[in-house]
Write a protein that binds this DNA or RNA. Structure first.
Lengths: 119, 119
DNA sequence: TCATCTTATTCGTAAAACCGAATGTCTTTT
DNA sequence: AAAAGACATTCGGTTTTACGAATAAGATGA
């Protein structure tokens, strides 16, 4: 049944807790790897590996900005899939205690560097 | 992240074309194994193996009635997940050419045995 | 009880996923 | 050019999944 391949690809990509956690972070918009690192507490290489899976599945795209590479979900429809799964299982993922900004995060989004400070 | 385990379990179970096809058959209500066999063209053991996965994931339940064992989806919410995935991918599964009843299907639902015939 | 029908399970091997460790690449700053 | 920062990729080894083949199990009719 090749007719189910697209959905299978999607489900396979999403069938991993780390990847679900990453996508949950991306609900707040694009995020760089170092942000996910501090937000989720995973190793950098580990996150990159899972991002590779999500990229190969066509779920996320990356954009370079200086040092950082920002990831974002290509098709917002995947969030509907995640939400449907949350409803179906009755489990609503990880509590979104941390909002978009994280205190000790080195990423430019969380630390809008007081860039003029050193001048 | 143990918080994502329920959804991960769901996605892993659903991340296989044969299992998606089976669930698609179950949209029309309960079905016995031999019905899926003729509806999908898979081997009996193959179907049973995938049904085992779906059962272990808590997605389907079985009910015995004489010779046949009828399977059905426990939580209709999974259909919402499937539908969301179809919308997200733009692929709407296999064309439902065969309706509930299949011509040469030996199952009692398709062949409401003219049981009084022999008497 | 025996034969038959429907379905489940076990077995073995090939393939794929997982993940820690190490290393490579690209960019920016000096 | 060299150093440093932010990510990506490759490389094993372990675990998990896939699936054909064979066999087992439970219910029914003779």
């Amino acid at each position: 049944m090749a007719a189910y391949d697209p959905q299978t690809k999607l489900f396979k990509a999403v069938g991993h807790p780390a990847r679900l956690a990453i996508l949950d972070v991306l609900r707040d918009g694009e995020a760089c790897v170092c942000h996910m690192e501090t937000a989720l507490g995973y190793r950098q290489a580990y996150i990159s590996q899972h991002l590779m899976v999500l990229r190969d599945a066509g779920l996320v795209q990356d954009r370079r900005d200086g040092w950082n590479i920002f990831y974002s979900v290509i098709n917002p429809g995947v969030f509907d899939v995640l939400s449907a799964a949350q409803s179906a299982t009755g489990s609503h993922g990880a509590p979104r205690t941390h909002s978009r900004k994280i205190e000790n995060c080195p990423c430019p989004h969380c630390n809008p560097v007081a860039e003029a400070a050193a001048c």
